[in-house]
Design a protein around this nucleic acid. Structure first.
Lengths: 348, 348
DNA sequence: TTGTACGCGTTATCAC
DNA sequence: GTGATAACGCGTACAA
């Protein structure tokens, strides 16, 4: 119990050589019946755990993990990912894990395909990416499979047998969480669901959130709530504001809004000078959202923890390659509610 | 860049032997000026990272990490810790890390001292514990130091030079978070702060939370809130309920309660049949709290993440012993707000 | 002052 | 079918 058994110990106890023990352990055959029995007897007695570090030492290989995420300049939601990747790289310095970060234009499927193919050509051991374009992602995932490259995805889900690990959140449930928050803040009233730039992104992402949100309220016994959805584009900021304010004017009794992507600051900003200020629940701790959370323009943010998603995914891959640790196929992170006072603990 | 340099590589590049490189790297002296220059030239060129796994392999030692927590039967708050320790143990199977879990009676300083001393006698490499008894903890921590045993603490803080790592939460700030929540739920009114069994536990723990809570409200421009504190014992459950209800009857306008420890379910249970139901914000996802959170008897819980605290602390210790990773002296986990819909993601 | 040889645990290979 | 041995990278004891 107190000792750590090695193959050498087992060999000595069984009265055979290390080689024979190895053949038994790895079921390589070429072992006589008597030797097999002797070794198995010993193995039954003790709790043998191979030393993963010795195993890895022999492999003597630098594993290449490539990460492909949207350009952080275009959408600051991805900024924490970049930091997480950097931290991971530092933490695994010396362990023979090499990380490289690539970026694609989140508005261009061509950019995604092109960058991904460039990465595949470099033959990494694994690629971690965000499949915001479902169709193109399927293509890339298959090409990776054919090239013998493991693929993990995070934040956005696609159903594919070729994907080894998904890390994300339960979007439907996060809609319910948001609903629960507004339900507590509001005894009754009219609530707006605001989708921004729905057309240019994985629409199912937003719809799942809406479904959960509506489902929560329709499950209530009381019938005190009215819910309306507004899908709105931010291509043209002026038009964005006009459309939003028009919507609010048409629905004077609207008291709260659920903004389904990381742009709740746009909504908070648009209404900041009106005398009637709606409650807002949004997503993600991007700088501008945090600003409005702290000054009261936004009431709650749900943190999708992009940074934790990447680092967790990378950790799984690293431990898989270094130590043969199995990777779970799906991990859903908890849905994190953040208010003005708790937000600082999540930054850094 | 692509290759992983080893001492052997450096030796070859510098035209010296491995031994000389080693002496330079570890500044052991006994190196000629010329050899020193040659090796340093190579080291300047390349980015050498020693392989932590090879280093550990030759140490060939089983590290013993002992954990000392309050008896989980007496206070289920500690239950997740036990699970976390088990998970950690499984994850590090094979790495030469041995974990043992010990328990003390949270109502007895003698039990703490006795168990801790029994552990010290077994000469572990590190002890991780919860210093709920500050004075006794200082004694034990010092004895550990003298015995050459590293000490990490979690959940409760004591200031000691002999403690290598503390993992916990900002209690003052968590009080502010709770206050912020009730501020959003309540435009104005009378709020009670409920301490339970304050005398039998680290009182500063609860007082920090109260301070943060009160500080939040006194910082508001408006003067719409009145705050009262009730310290109450649960030694006698009947008396507990009577005292609490008496307090509520005396303060008919009291609309919300902030329960500063993991026993908010006691409060929720006591008032569940009254027609006036106060809002409740409490701490920790123990079963009974979760039950009342889900049925609406409790509105929010702040999750102190005891399980994450232990596993994080154990991870730091393991990586310190195995790979010489430095341990930060203090880590404060974010303050996690949980509602009825988000709670399931935190269980398991 | 320097180089070499050894051991850590695992596994592949080679010779018997 | 089996045992002995080398190799991975590091640290160090010891010999030159």
């Amino acid at each position: 119990m107190d000792k750590k058994y090695t193959i050498k110990d087992i060999a000595a106890l069984a009265g055979v050589s290390k080689g024979t023990v190895d053949r038994v352990l790895h079921k390589r055959g070429k072992v006589s019946e008597t030797a097999l029995v002797k070794v198995n007897n010993v193995l039954d007695e003790i709790d043998y755990q191979p030393n993963p570090m010795a195993k890895n030492l022999r492999i003597n290989k630098v594993f290449k993990l490539f990460v492909l995420i949207p350009n952080v300049g275009k959408d600051s939601f991805w900024l924490p990912c970049k930091d997480g990747i950097q931290e991971f790289e530092d933490a695994y310095k010396g362990f023979g894990i090499k990380v490289e970060n690539y970026f694609f234009d989140p508005a261009s499927t061509a950019s995604f395909l092109e960058t991904a193919r460039g990465m595949i050509a470099l033959q990494p051991d694994a690629i971690l990416t965000v499949p915001i374009f479902a169709k193109e992602a399927h293509v890339i995932v298959k090409e990776c499979y054919e090239a013998g490259i493991k693929v993990s995805i995070f934040n956005n889900f696609i159903a594919s047998d070729y994907v080894h690990n998904f890390i994300g959140q339960d979007l439907y449930q996060s809609g319910r969480v948001a609903a629960n928050l507004l339900h507590m803040l509001l005894k009754k009233g009219h609530i707006g669901i605001i989708h921004i730039d729905e057309e240019s992104r994985n629409a199912t992402h937003l719809q799942e959130k809406e479904k959960g949100f509506r489902n929560y309220f329709s499950g209530l016994k009381s019938d005190n709530y009215q819910i309306s959805t507004l899908s709105i584009s931010h291509k043209d900021p002026v038009k964005f504001k006009a459309t939003l304010l028009e919507f609010l004017d048409e629905n004077e009794n609207l008291e709260a809004m659920f903004v389904t992507i990381s742009k709740s600051h746009l909504v908070a900003d648009a209404i900041k000078d009106r005398k009637q200020r709606q409650l807002i629940v949004g997503y993600d701790l991007v700088d501008k959202n945090v600003h409005y959370l702290k000054n009261g323009g936004v009431n709650f943010l749900i943190n999708q923890k992009p940074k934790e998603q990447v680092t967790l995914a990378l950790n799984y891959l690293a431990e898989y390659f270094l130590f043969d640790k199995p990777i779970p196929s799906e991990v859903l992170l908890p849905i994190v509610i953040v208010n003005a006072e708790s937000v600082d603990g999540y930054l850094v």
